[in-house]
């Protein structure tokens, strides 16, 4: 057992008291990232699309689907705010991931759907430069994908 996992053990024991949590973060024993165990850090840290796919679905084998509609501007004047809407007719959607191909970390958002949630998600993303938006939808053990090119005239990462 490594020393970090021992610390984790101690942390789990004390996690009932919220003050312990605060102290642990304050002491730098735990970064807040570790507290959110479910957040797929490796997928968000991945630097390219294939690594992201591997981290999320442990495969890069995705099938193109015409049943995924991405609504996003063809030309985004401001890359800091690019409104996107994903609609799909695919049944039993488990999760939807949104990737911006040319961003430093492509994975932007991962939505996990409940059983009666419709295949619809809308949000706003940042895009560093002109890039492809890639949407992956996991349903019935398969990964469906669709993409759309968005031209960015002003970058979103420079502020």
């Amino acid at each position: 057992m490594t020393s970090t996992s021992i610390k984790r053990r101690t942390f789990l024991k004390g996690s009932l008291a919220s003050s312990v949590l605060g102290v642990a973060i304050g002491a730098g024993v735990l970064t807040p990232r570790m507290v959110l165990a479910a957040w797929p850090k490796s997928a968000f840290d991945a630097k390219n699309v294939n690594d992201t796919l591997n981290a999320l679905y442990s495969t890069t084998n995705t099938s193109k689907s015409s049943d995924i509609k991405i609504k996003a501007p063809d030309i985004a004047e401001n890359g800091a705010v690019v409104p996107i809407t994903v609609t799909t007719g695919i049944k039993d959607v488990e999760s939807i991931s949104v990737l911006v191909e040319k961003n430093p970390q492509p994975l932007t958002a991962l939505f996990t759907m409940g059983s009666n949630t419709e295949g619809f998600v809308s949000t706003r993303v940042k895009m560093g430069k002109t890039s492809k938006l890639i949407v992956n939808i996991k349903a019935g053990g398969k990964v469906h994908t669709a993409s759309k090119e968005v031209k960015v005239t002003i970058g979103g990462c420079g502020g």
Partner: peptide, 18 residues
């Protein structure tokens, strides 16, 4: 009904609709 894991590339003052 919906869980969302977000990265840094979600815009400031995030908007979400479902």
């Amino acid at each position: 009904v919906l869980g969302a894991d977000w990265g840094v590339a979600i815009s400031k003052n995030p908007y979400l609709s479902f």
